[in-house]
Design a protein around this nucleic acid. Structure first.
Lengths: 107, 107
DNA sequence: ACAACACTTGAACGATTGTTCATATGTAGG
DNA sequence: CCTACATATGAACAATCGTTCAAGTGTTGT
C-alpha cells in the first residue's frame, strides 16, 4: 500500500545486510547463533569448515553488528546482535518449513 | 529458543534469495514493485538506469519467482510475487525508518 | 510491409567475493 | 618462559557478479 522511497545510501546499506546473508557458509553461521551463543570452534565444527574460514566470516558479521562477540578464556563466543535480522530469518525459515510440509502432504 | 537445523540445499536456497536482494540496483527494483506493478520503462526511469540493465535484473528476479511479469501491449509489467520477501522487506525498511527518526530525535 | 517503440538477450570486461594456506596474536597451564 | 590451544589476520587465487554496448525479438499503428 505504501510506496517506499529510499535514498541511495539507505538502499545500499540494506543491500549490504542482505549481502552478508547471501553466502551459504555465512548464513549457516548466523543461523547457528540464532538460538544461543556459540564458540568459533563449535561453529566451525558444526559447519565442517576450517576455523580460519569461520573466523573470516565472523569478522564480517561482527563488523556489520549482526553478531556480537565476547571472549571468555581461550574461546570467543558469538551471538545474535540484530533483532531485525533475527526476525527476518525466522520468517524465511518458517516459510521454508511450511512449504516443505505442504509438498509432503500433497504427495 | 528453537535451534534450526537446515540442510545444505535449504541454506543455499535461502542464501540465493538474499543474494538477489544484495545489490542496490536490484533491491531498488524490488522495492519499486512492492506497492504496485510497474513497467520496465517506469522502473528504469525511476532508478535512472538503462532499460537493458533493468531487464537483466528483472530476469533474475522473475526466474527466482520474487517478481512476476505480465505483458500488456508493448509494455511488460512487473509485480511482487513472493509474500515472504514482501514482509521481510517491510520489516527491514520500517526498522530503517525507526532508527532514522531516533537519530534525529537524539540530536 | 515498414517504422517506431518497449523490452530482451548475448558477449565482454573490470571489480568484487569466498576460500585456502601460512603466519600472527592472545590466553591458560606447567 | 615455553608449549599447547583457540582464534585472528594477510596474501593470493579462481570464480562469480554487475554493468555496458550491440544486436535481437515482439507489438502497435500506418
Amino acid at each position: 500500500m505504501t510506496t517506499y522511497d529510499l535514498q541511495l545510501d539507505q538502499t545500499t546499506e540494506l543491500a549490504e545486510t542482505f549481502g552478508l546473508l547471501a553466502d551459504p557458509t555465512r548464513l549457516s553461521i548466523v543461523i547457528a547463533c540464532m538460538d544461543q551463543e556459540r564458540s568459533v570452534g563449535e561453529i566451525a565444527e558444526r559447519l565442517g569448515s576450517s576455523p580460519s574460514l569461520t573466523s573470516h566470516h565472523l569478522r564480517l558479521l561482527r563488523s556489520a553488528r549482526i553478531l556480537r562477540s565476547e571472549r571468555r578464556g581461550k574461546q570467543v563466543f558469538y551471538a545474535m546482535a540484530d533483532t531485525c535480522v533475527q526476525s527476518v530469518l525466522t520468517i524465511m525459515i518458517e516459510h521454508l518449513f511450511v512449504h516443505e510440509h505442504h509438498t509432503i502432504d500433497e504427495t
